Every structure is written in C-alpha cells, then in structure tokens.
Simulated scan of single mutants.
Amino acid sequence: MRVKQILTDVQLVIADLEVHLNGELRTSPTLCALIPAANGHEEKIVPLNTPDGRPIFMNLENAIQPLSD
C-alpha cells in the first residue's frame, strides 16, 4: 500500500443527516469529509459511514448537497 496524494483542504465534520429507512425519516449524526469548493466545483460533503454506523470508503459519487443559506 502507498500514499498517492494527501488532500490537505479536506475537513472531518459530523453532520446531522436525514435518511429515509424502511419508510421512516430518521436523523443520524454522521462522520463526513467536507471538501471545499475549488476550480469551479461546488463544496462536497461525503459520508464516511452508513446510517447505522458502519464505516465506508470515501467515494466522491456519494457526495451530498451541502446546506444552502
């Protein structure tokens, strides 16, 4: 295993996410990576665990829309 790149601007945050599970709307504090906006791309929030707490790999395809003011 080797380090290919270190993402220096990424922050670890805990976001209170709403998730539909089994027909119910649930909220869950979720560990996320916050990737700041850069090069014309919007800010991204990528969950690092599932709603039931299991860890997952960071995948930019799982990014969710950040809160808008």
Rank of each mutant, 00 (worst) to 15 (best):
residue 50 T to K: 15
residue 53 G to S: 09
residue 16 D to G: 03
residue 53 G to D: 07
residue 44 K to N: 01
residue 41 H to M: 09
residue 6 I to C: 03
residue 49 N to G: 06
residue 39 N to R: 11
residue 57 F to E: 08
residue 49 N to Y: 04
residue 33 A to M: 13
residue 67 L to K: 04
residue 44 K to C: 04
residue 11 Q to D: 09
residue 55 P to V: 11
residue 60 L to W: 04
residue 29 P to Q: 10
residue 50 T to H: 05
residue 33 A to L: 10
residue 29 P to M: 08
residue 1 M to Y: 15
residue 27 T to H: 09
residue 20 H to T: 12
residue 57 F to W: 13
residue 52 D to H: 04
residue 65 Q to K: 07
residue 31 L to S: 04
residue 19 V to A: 04
residue 12 L to C: 10
residue 7 L to V: 05
residue 15 A to K: 04
residue 36 P to T: 12
residue 2 R to W: 05
residue 40 G to V: 11
residue 55 P to K: 07
residue 26 R to Q: 15
residue 64 I to V: 13
residue 44 K to Q: 15
residue 29 P to Y: 08
residue 40 G to N: 09
residue 57 F to L: 08
residue 28 S to P: 02
residue 22 N to L: 06
residue 3 V to T: 08
residue 46 V to F: 02
residue 19 V to E: 02
residue 21 L to M: 13
residue 58 M to H: 04
residue 23 G to Y: 02
residue 22 N to D: 14
residue 13 V to H: 13
residue 51 P to Q: 06
residue 36 P to W: 11
residue 27 T to Y: 07
residue 35 I to A: 01
residue 57 F to I: 06
residue 17 L to G: 00
residue 38 A to P: 00
residue 45 I to D: 02
residue 2 R to L: 03
residue 27 T to K: 13
residue 3 V to Q: 00
residue 66 P to V: 02
residue 62 N to I: 02
residue 68 S to H: 03
residue 41 H to W: 13
residue 14 I to S: 08
residue 52 D to A: 09
residue 5 Q to N: 10
residue 30 T to H: 01
residue 29 P to L: 13
residue 47 P to F: 00
residue 56 I to F: 04
residue 25 L to R: 14
residue 69 D to I: 00
residue 64 I to W: 01
residue 31 L to V: 13
residue 31 L to I: 14
residue 54 R to A: 13
residue 40 G to E: 08
residue 47 P to L: 05
residue 67 L to T: 00
residue 65 Q to W: 03
residue 45 I to C: 02
residue 45 I to T: 04
residue 26 R to V: 11
residue 29 P to H: 10
residue 25 L to D: 11
residue 44 K to M: 15
residue 7 L to T: 03
residue 47 P to S: 01
residue 36 P to A: 12
residue 33 A to R: 03
residue 27 T to D: 12
residue 18 E to F: 05
residue 60 L to G: 05
residue 27 T to E: 14
residue 33 A to C: 10
residue 7 L to N: 07
residue 54 R to V: 06
residue 1 M to L: 12
residue 26 R to L: 12
residue 37 A to M: 12
residue 34 L to R: 09
residue 57 F to M: 06
residue 62 N to Y: 10
residue 54 R to F: 09
residue 24 E to F: 07
residue 35 I to V: 15
residue 45 I to K: 03
residue 10 V to I: 13
residue 22 N to C: 05
residue 40 G to Q: 08
residue 55 P to S: 15
residue 4 K to I: 06
residue 19 V to G: 00
residue 37 A to C: 08
residue 42 E to Q: 10
residue 30 T to F: 01
residue 6 I to K: 10
residue 29 P to C: 08
residue 9 D to S: 13
residue 39 N to M: 08
residue 45 I to S: 01
residue 18 E to N: 10
residue 37 A to Y: 14
residue 44 K to E: 06
residue 35 I to L: 15
residue 42 E to D: 12
residue 37 A to K: 14
residue 66 P to I: 02
residue 36 P to Q: 06
residue 17 L to D: 00
residue 56 I to P: 03
